[in-house]
């Protein structure tokens, strides 16, 4: 559906994106994830047409759109600031694109109501001025406005970042449902890895103008392809020479001992598992947050964190000696 081929984007002399190659399938929920300034929004804006790449091609349905005007690309977009038109009512905001495309009055009325219905915007809200709405409601309007034209592609640039946590989770869920209903190819930009993991079919992790890794949430999370990815996408333990040597001896594995080994903290366990390496450790700190308890352990002169589900056992006390179990399959080395 969408393909970036050797795309390079420059701001003046600054290279924001260097040789971007990426393919996105039809109907896919695809996320650009990365810290700010990594080039994810830049890539999105190039697809939408606000930026022209200095090199390379961007294909949509097999056609190079690099020189195609924005309005011909049939892409819907939701902005971080929503960019709702402050002087118009909710209805007029949603109807804007339809009016531009010269739909008849009745058609506009019908389409706006249908979309409003789908996104849970009430009739009363439709007549309000956008500035009278709350943040969450504004977000819905922005979304309705983006999909009312039935675009082939929907682009969302950090759409939830201005909302509070609870609302964000609600809207996230709705967004996912809506996307599946519409079956629309969706590009989502975010710096929030949780959002990326929950929503996406596939994720591209950006760093400094490069893509570090493309993959399903599972792949990205459990089989990160670089230190940056596994660090960015969740909590990680860094295993040093001592631990890695011990694991190699115990299980006859062949981890490089002069390089760091990475393992997710929830994959480090304190209850016995077969086939895992067993290491002696002492509890340094303990954080209980309800469902989970996070321990900081000292193990062979290194610090390892581990995460235990509340399973009915008493918590370990600080200073207590425990056994630490690590599955060698979970260790990532680059």
């Amino acid at each position: 559906m969408i393909a970036f081929k050797q795309v390079e984007i420059k701001y003046g002399n600054f290279v924001a994106i260097e040789n971007l190659n990426l393919e996105i399938q039809e109907g896919e929920f695809f996320t650009f994830l990365g810290p700010s300034g990594c080039g994810k929004t830049t890539s999105l804006r190039a697809l939408v047409g606000f930026l022209t790449p200095s090199r390379g091609e961007i294909l949509v349905a097999g056609r190079n759109v690099v020189n195609m005007p924005v309005e011909k690309r049939e892409i819907g977009m939701v902005f971080q600031s929503y960019a709702l038109f402050p002087t118009m009512t909710v209805f007029d905001n949603i109807a804007f694109g339809l009016k531009v495309k010269k739909f008849s009055k009745t058609e506009i009325e019908g389409k706006v109501r249908a979309v409003a219905d789908k996104i849970k915007i009430t009739d009363a809200q439709l007549q309000k001025n956008v500035s009278e709405l709350s943040g969450g409601q504004q977000q819905r309007v922005a979304l309705a406005r983006a999909i009312v034209l039935e675009p082939k592609i929907l682009c969302l640039d950090e759409p939830l970042s201005n909302l509070d946590a609870k609302l964000r989770i609600d809207l996230r869920r709705e967004l996912k449902r809506l996307q599946k209903d519409l079956g629309i190819t969706t590009l989502y930009v975010t710096h929030d890895q949780e959002e990326a993991l929950t929503l996406s079919d596939r994720i591209a992790v950006f760093n400094n103008g490069y893509i570090e890794q493309v993959g399903t949430p599972y792949e990205i999370y459990n089989h990160s392809s670089s230190e940056f990815v596994c660090d960015f996408i969740g909590d990680i333990n860094r295993l040093g020479k001592n631990i890695l040597t011990e694991i190699n001896t115990q299980l006859a594995t062949s981890f490089k001992t002069d390089a760091t080994g990475f393992v997710r903290i929830e994959r480090c366990l304190t209850r016995a598992r077969s086939g895992f390496a067993v290491l002696d450790a002492v509890v340094q700190d303990c954080e209980f947050n309800g469902i989970l308890t996070k321990y900081t352990l000292s193990c062979m002169g290194e610090t390892v964190k581990c995460l235990e589900k509340n399973d009915g056992y008493m918590f370990y006390k600080v200073g207590e000696s425990v056994e630490l179990y690590i599955d060698p399959k979970d260790i990532m080395q680059f």
Binding site: G49, V70, I75, A83, F96, R145
Partner: peptide
Amino acid sequence: NLEEAAKVMGA
């Protein structure tokens, strides 16, 4: 973004 939003919608 206002302007870009309008542009995306074909204005």
